[in-house]
Simulated scan of single mutants.
Amino acid sequence: MELHLDLVGGIAGDMFVAAILDLQPDLEAGLMTALSYAPMLEGVSCRTVSHDDGILTGRRFLVERSGPDTTHGHHHHTAWRDIRAALSASSLDADTTRHAIGIFSLLADAEARVHGSAAEAVEFHEVGAWDSIADIVAAAYLIAQLNATRWTSGTIPLGSGRVRTAHGILPVPAPAAALLLEGLPTIDDGIPGERVTPTGAAILRYLCKQGTISPQPRRLVASGFGFGTRKLPGMSNCVRVICFEPVAASVAGSDRVAVLEFEIDDQTGEDLAQGIENLRAHKDVLDVVQMPVFGKKGRMMTGVRVLAKPDAVGQIAALAFDETTTIGIRHAIVDRAILPREIVDAEVEFSPMRVKLVKRPSGQTAKAEASDVGDTANAATRQRRRQEAEAAAKTGMKS
């Protein structure tokens, strides 16, 4: 399974969590249980609600606290080392703990760069508050449960303007978020405000390590929408997560091959036949075929096509110039699809025969080598020998 994040309105921790739960609502019960084991969330409750902004529908992830918020002091200063220790000592499963610490570590490194300090000395402000801890632990649990083979992201809306924080008024994106977004594709869609929070940026940086485009064919199977608290003019403030499954892979492999082509109209058949055999005998030639073609003035000619290893084009061209009368050769390096194959020996009437086994998308096929069938038998006997050899090779009977 591959998952793609389409950042329609931007991304924050709660938007990410809501989008995943809209995609796969069966994970909600397990998430709520996991959050009950999370540290530093005493008195905190979490729930999801359906959301319709008049454009799109999806979910919101709400983190609420009953009573006054005094858990981490008036300004929510929480040391990174304390959060890490609390997560490590919690009853959360190992994968959730690993992902949560991984996301927090990225945030700590970014904050350390912003303030010119060591990561161990970082004290979180907004990120250390109970709602951000809930968002990151929830994201970590969902990441662990989904166990996607690949996460990708679309372009990231940067936003603009200023945002009020515990550090004072900061530019958008916030300095820590900007550091976390380094190297990722961004866009200015003209809508101001904070579009990517530090928590959202850390989740993106943690997940999307492999670029934005999957090179393999994929089948889109589901999508979900997670909404944030802001209202954007003319646009849904949401993250869309799109789930893909890989298309069944072909059994064919691929490589590259050199193709050399030329025509002959002034060489005797006997001499050309010998020249082609000499070409075919070269260690870097994969195959040589010849065919009748019509040239200028309606003259019959012989077309020759040579398949060779790409790094041997010069050698093969020189050999073709020596072995034939051609004075011009076209060549190109092309891709090809090749099926797995092997030659096995099959015992038939006490005489071994070579059989080529080929693995095709619909199953394995077998073909006896014509030169081993024998040229003295009649057609019916030759056909019977071929069938027996091919059946023996398929069932694994070797000489």
Rank of each mutant, 00 (worst) to 15 (best):
residue 10 G to T: 01
residue 14 D to C: 11
residue 19 A to I: 04
residue 30 G to L: 09
residue 31 L to R: 08
residue 38 A to T: 07
residue 43 G to T: 02
residue 46 C to W: 06
residue 55 I to K: 15
residue 57 T to W: 01
residue 59 R to A: 09
residue 60 R to N: 07
residue 73 G to E: 08
residue 87 L to G: 04
residue 95 D to G: 02
residue 97 T to M: 00
residue 97 T to Y: 00
residue 103 I to G: 13
residue 107 L to H: 03
residue 107 L to G: 05
residue 109 D to G: 15
residue 118 A to V: 07
residue 128 G to D: 10
residue 130 W to K: 12
residue 131 D to F: 15
residue 131 D to N: 13
residue 134 A to M: 06
residue 157 P to G: 05
residue 161 G to D: 03
residue 173 P to E: 00
residue 177 A to F: 08
residue 181 L to F: 11
residue 191 I to N: 02
residue 201 A to K: 14
residue 206 Y to A: 02
residue 212 T to Q: 01
residue 218 R to F: 12
residue 218 R to E: 08
residue 229 T to G: 13
residue 230 R to S: 06
residue 231 K to D: 14
residue 232 L to Y: 14
residue 233 P to V: 12
residue 234 G to M: 04
residue 241 V to W: 07
residue 244 F to I: 00
residue 246 P to G: 05
residue 257 V to T: 03
residue 269 G to P: 07
residue 279 L to Q: 03
residue 283 K to Q: 10
residue 286 L to N: 10
residue 295 G to M: 14
residue 298 G to T: 09
residue 312 A to C: 04
residue 314 G to K: 14
residue 328 G to Q: 09
residue 332 A to Q: 09
residue 337 A to V: 03
residue 338 I to R: 12
residue 340 P to H: 00
residue 345 D to E: 06
residue 353 M to K: 14
residue 361 P to M: 06
residue 362 S to C: 01
residue 365 T to N: 09
residue 371 S to L: 10
residue 384 R to L: 09
residue 389 A to W: 15
residue 390 E to T: 11
